[in-house]
Design a protein around this nucleic acid. Structure first.
Length: 420
RNA sequence: GGCGGGAUACCCGAGUGGCCAAAGGGGCCAGACUGUAAAUCUGGUGGCAAUGCCUUCGCAGGUUCGAAUCCUGCUCCCGCCA
């Protein structure tokens, strides 16, 4: 195996990385690998607790891919046993949801498929940590626990906070970092990838590796990717994520909503564009830069052509004000409406209905009251003669026409399909 | 086990008999401005067939012409002491 010079490797590895611990060991480890021709074993562990992989997850995954491209060995750990515990990292309370072994396995398979979009799975080792934890006896567990003290455990920031606050820390949670660290011993990792909140586990792994007379792993920690709101970490529960399985156009729309201030971070962490090039792009118009960013990322998960199409479509429909290509159709029947609104029968016979009711029935507002408020504020319009005309009066009858387009705000739009 | 504090709308939080569908803030929605960015400004933010009616202040009862507010019981949270 021929490796690139150490400095070249370092430059790639350091990009978008928040912390390398211990930093000074990395160059020496790379040099040794290059001299001996033995690739480094780069570990990345994931707990198969959720399903949708989003861009936040891809940050360490991309780093893993970079290591692969440098000729090193990717080792993916599926934490099917640690998932039974739940990662306490950054949490102020124990996880309540317990997954069954079947759920965990189904999640694991799904995960690996998605991970394959970033990592070259044909060259990666995949292990399930149940393979070794499942075989351990209780005596083995006791022995393993004998390597860590309570005081050490309490140096963990999240545990310390919980201990101080008097919130419970369960014994099985204490096992989590020990298990994660033991994974490193078993697979003999040289590097471990993860977020900065993993520092404690990464360091514990070094202790256990030394205890086993193994070389100690180096932690390469990525920063946390902020979500679409530009403030909080990208996460499913916060609804501020871009999933890697989303359609090109959906990704496009989400990218364009990202605040400018996080663009640079996104470029650095989510694309392979060189830092010099990024600076050049950022110096131009922010809108163009954002489109460039979106295209770069989208083409990685779909294709360049799909990314270009999504970008063009965004330019036409959103920026250019053209009608969207996929307007949802809502079918309403006059007969059904008459049954629903017996007092409006006379109106309906004339094919009219109070505007606020129509908006609600088309699913564009959750209630008649909300619909009325939206109309009063000029937020609802009907497409006529090539443009959207605001509805003036929410209570006034509106002539129902087949194929009419009704829009609420800038984003919600529906086409009426009228039947008798 | 003892003493005390608390539970209000999506979240935080004011309100301690009628002026309360409930202050204020955050979030969210709409409008203006824009690059569907940010910032700023404006309006809105229980439901209904609507100058009224219905539901909502932890749960269940009660007092009262009238209860988020007072009383009783219950559930859950949180302090301090043991």
């Amino acid at each position: 195996m021929i490796f690139a010079p150490v400095e070249e490797q370092l430059a790639i590895i350091r990009r978008g990385v928040e912390k390398i611990v211990p930093e000074e060991e990395l160059a020496a480890r790379l040099k040794k690998s290059r001299d001996t021709g033995v690739p480094l074993r780069v570990k990345y562990g994931i707990d198969p607790t959720g399903i949708d992989v989003h861009l936040g997850h891809t940050v360490p995954l991309r780093k893993l891919r970079q290591f692969q491209e440098l000729g090193h060995q990717a080792v993916i750990i599926i934490g099917n046993y640690t998932a039974l515990v739940g990662d306490p990292s950054g949490r102020d309370h124990a996880r309540s949801k317990k997954l069954t072994a079947d759920e965990v396995e189904a999640n694991a398979r799904d995960y690996l498929t998605q991970v394959g979009k970033v990592v070259d799975m044909s060259k990666a080792e995949v292990h399930r940590n149940g393979d070794w934890f499942g075989k351990m006896s209780f005596a083995d567990v006791i022995q393993l626990c004998g390597k860590v003290t309570v005081a050490q455990m309490l140096t963990r920031d999240d545990f310390a906070k919980r201990h101080a606050a008097g919130t419970p820390i369960f014994m099985h949670e204490c096992l989590y970092p020990i298990m994660q660290a033991w994974d490193s011993v078993v697979i003999k990792s040289d590097i471990e990838l993860g977020g900065t909140e993993q520092l404690y586990s990464f360091m514990l792994a070094r202790d256990l590796q030394r205890d086993q007379s193994l070389s100690q792993q180096i932690g390469v920690m990525s920063p946390i990717l902020v979500g679409l709101d530009g403030e909080r970490r990208m996460g499913k529960s916060l609804g501020n994520y871009i999933g890697i399985a989303e359609t090109p156009y959906d990704m496009m729309k989400k990218f364009m909503q990202v605040p400018d201030v996080v663009m640079k971070m996104y470029f650095e962490l989510l694309t392979s564009i060189s830092m010099e090039e990024i600076d050049k792009i950022m110096a131009g118009h922010p809108k163009e830069a954002k489109i460039r960013l979106a295209r770069a990322v989208i083409s990685g998960y779909h294709s360049e052509q799909a990314a270009d199409e999504a970008a063009d479509r965004w330019q036409r429909e959103i920026s250019g004000g053209e009608l969207p290509a996929d307007i949802p159709v809502v079918t309403l029947s006059l007969t059904a409406l008459k049954a629903q609104f017996p007092l409006c029968e006379a109106d309906l016979s004339q094919r009219t209905l109070a505007a606020n009711r129509l908006v609600k029935e088309m699913g564009l507002a959750p209630s008649n009251g909300e619909s009325l408020r939206l109309i009063a504020q000029g937020g609802v319009s009907v497409y006529r003669d090539g443009k959207f005309v605001p509805i003036a009066d929410g209570r006034a009858p509106l002539l129902l026409e087949d194929n009419m387009l009704v829009r609420v705000g800038k984003k919600k739009i529906a086409r009426l399909s009228l039947q008798n």
